[in-house]
Design a protein around this nucleic acid. Structure first.
Lengths: 274, 274
DNA sequence: ATTAAAATGTCAATATATGAGATTTTTGTA
DNA sequence: TACAAAAATCTCATATATTGACATTTTAAT
């Protein structure tokens, strides 16, 4: 285990159920030596990923918010997707459209359009989806290179089996091939009850999957309409094309330039006034 | 320089002006060896802090969005501040109230209330403020322990001098003491023209500064009113008290429990349908 | 001011990161 | 589909940065 992994594993401790951690508890759960624990939380605090709030207690730090803003303002994948997602969900006229990506073995929802909706779903910005049982996950996983699929199958056999994706490698592979060929993955109530989904994978121009978009609608007894499915497919195709374009253009000056307004020189700050 | 610093310094490359980086360019700017650069971006990608989009190109990764959600949903500092900030800005009836924190040598705005406003200001969630010239920064810096101030003074003498905070250590120290004593720091057009600010530091119960709140209003020729300043002071006092309470309570079960709705077992995901 | 606790610094041992090159995998083109 | 070129990963000896016990300093409490 590399030292980066050890360090970042500290961040994994911070959950909704337990957003504050003391040094003592970090030492216990990770069996760090005392000096190492001090060093780690100091490095993480200096980099802003953690923030000390006093008495040996820590919460997630402001650097995360800064990096998140960076993504919101100018992430190229988001820039390509956002307007397409917005116009698509407007044309569909009902439901939410989500954008998700894979890292390590987690699927994360990174954007949704519209930002708020009466539909209350698990799919929402920043949330994790299960690796095998959501339509979004399946749309992505089905398009992963075989080498990664072998690894996933070996390490997640129980979940794959429970999710109905097959008990043997051959079966798993065959089912994923079906999803891949269909180009769309549907579900009803897989993650949230009362909701139906249609997920389509996104590629970087070529054949590398970089994520998926998913249309989520209230379950009204019938399937997502043919028309809506086609709209989602069309949106995915346009996004994939856009991502492909990112790869051909020169990286040095993509400059979306949203006129971010640089800081002005300090005009006049009162030192202290009451 | 530790290997964590080296690794995280890669994240600093990703700016609004240049949100995509190739492996080649990372190697050049950091003068990493080829193998090390591959290793670094792989580690960062595996942890989700970077995301490969193909052809050796990288953007900031989805783990950041996941961590940001964690903060939005259950950060204790935010939980304590949010309702106080909202009710305060409603009572003030005009402007924006921001919450900022320090890490390393950056001041970051971590929250604002209301979320959107006709007032277009630099102060907004995720943005960095200059260390010495904004009222928010000064409210925080003035309350840092002397040891840190010495370091800041030595390393930022030009900016401190340019910002009118003194040319010599004694002068710097004296001016900060004034700000500290006043308990509030005012500015007009320091960062954004046409805007006036009043910032009050936040403490963790005791004397450790953990951030500042700042009232931002359109500049209408006159100062922020005595009443508004008092409202901000009162809000800061309540937040400081709340943060102090975080330190005394048992950390094991703070459980804000916003009923986050766990995933349901997969009810029925169609394998692939058209 | 005094004591206790918390945080940081010191240093030798050693585990881990490093970089050059070999090897494998992926991509582009016929 | 096969082939060549490029990209990404793996290997391994070396050097260096990490580690942990302990000493020291700093901070907090009475």
């Amino acid at each position: 285990m590399s030292s980066l992994e050890r360090l970042l594993s500290v961040l994994d401790l911070f959950t909704e159920e337990r957003p504050i951690w003391t040094l003592e508890d970090i030492i216990e759960t990770h069996s760090f030596s005392r000096s190492m624990a001090y060093r780690y939380v100091k490095e993480l605090s200096d980099s802003g990923l953690l923030m000390p709030i006093g008495r040996g207690r820590f919460v997630l730090g402001p650097r995360i918010i800064e990096l998140d803003r960076q993504i919101r303002v100018c992430d190229p994948l988001l820039a390509v997707s956002q307007s397409i997602m917005l116009s698509t969900i407007e044309e569909v006229g009902d439901g939410i459209l989500t954008l998700s990506s894979l890292y390590g073995e987690r699927i994360i929802c990174t954007h949704q359009e519209p930002e708020s909706s009466p539909l209350r779903v698990t799919h929402s910005r920043g949330r994790t989806l299960p690796l095998f049982s959501s339509s979004t996950s399946r749309a992505i996983v089905a398009n992963l290179p075989e080498r990664k699929l072998v690894k996933l199958f070996l390490e997640h056999r129980p979940e794959i089996s429970a999710g109905g994706l097959g008990n043997e490698w051959a079966e798993f592979k065959k089912k994923l091939a079906e999803i891949r060929r269909a180009g769309i993955c549907l579900s009803h109530g897989a993650i949230d009850p009362g909701v139906v989904c249609a997920a389509v994978p996104l590629f970087n121009g070529k054949s590398n999957v970089v994520g998926a978009i998913c249309l989520v609608q209230a379950d009204q007894g019938r399937e997502i309409s043919r028309r809506d499915k086609d709209l989602v497919r069309a949106a995915a195709a346009r996004i994939s094309e856009g991502v492909g374009n990112l790869l051909s253009q020169d990286v040095m000056k993509p400059l979306p330039q949203k006129a971010a307004g640089p800081f002005l020189a300090n005009a006049g700050v009162a030192l202290a006034e009451v």
